[in-house]
Nucleic acid binder design. Structure first.
Lengths: 139, 139
DNA sequence: TCAAAACCCTACCAAATTACTAAGGATTTT
DNA sequence: AAAATCCTTAGTAATTTGGTAGGGTTTTGA
């Protein structure tokens, strides 16, 4: 019941891109260094994000990646689905017997609700500060 | 982001025990056969449930397992925690930077809410019928 | 022009986890 | 005593995770 580094690092990449949105491309090297991650590994994670149309790449010197859309239009759910597969606590949810099927559906919907209502704008605007306005999440 | 067969089969065992609650012990062999699962594998799953005090074992001929408490006092969360570990989308949630930490906390709390408010009584009473009163879950 | 910077692609691999199987011992009831 | 059942340890094949290796190809600033 865990989200792997694929989804976690993918979110990290996308949050970095959101923070620099409108300021030109950001290289994977920069993202890898500032987050202490393997650039090669991030390359493998951004490939599906590019194929899914969430980011655009700009090649050559001073190139990098940019978001395809504004940060408020991309959700955590978009990213997690691309890197982790469908949001569901079990595969073949419809094959389960009624009681368990209902349980899985309720869990799935609860997680979807959070992921699909959290945008990159939300995430980028809260990633620098400390605890000061984290109360916003609890309203 | 999946619950493995440990948690799923564990729930299956516990739902079967809930359905027979008050009618004496139910053997793993019976549970394994009626659910088409490996008895040997179920033995490995019920061991932690016994150690956690969720079930009691009765040895010898005509023995088996019984719930330690009434079905309404045992939740899906109790079972999943024993077999899958802590309910959390990532390990070391507190080590994440603020934005992601808040996201993981919101997901964790949403899943907890469902698992801790679904009892074995709920699950056992809905496991025989079809779709007829599944609307109860949506109120 | 040209070399560096960056993206792109295909393998491969070690460690961990999952999902069991195998084999037998311990305990209790009939 | 025999049968039924719980209980325990060990091994193992398949899959996933979390990368590394080693190369391309494309673009652009100097």
């Amino acid at each position: 019941m865990k989200i792997s580094t694929k989804g976690r690092y993918g979110l990290t990449i996308m949050i970095e891109l959101a923070k620099k949105y409108g300021e030109g491309p950001l290289s994977l090297k920069t993202i890898a260094q500032s987050n202490d991650l393997s650039e090669h590994y991030l390359e493998q994670l951004i490939a599906p994000l590019r194929n899914a149309g969430l980011v655009k790449s700009i090649r050559g010197a001073y190139g990098g990646y940019i978001l395809s859309e504004t940060p408020e239009k991309i959700t955590a759910g978009d990213i997690i689905r691309v890197l982790e597969g469908p949001i569901s606590p079990v595969e073949g949810i419809e094959d389960e017997e009624p009681a368990k099927r209902e349980l899985w559906i309720r869990i799935r919907d609860a997680v979807k609700e959070v992921l699909d209502n959290t945008t990159l704008e939300d995430l980028a605007s809260h990633s620098d500060d400390g605890e000061t306005d984290s109360y916003m999440f609890y309203i």
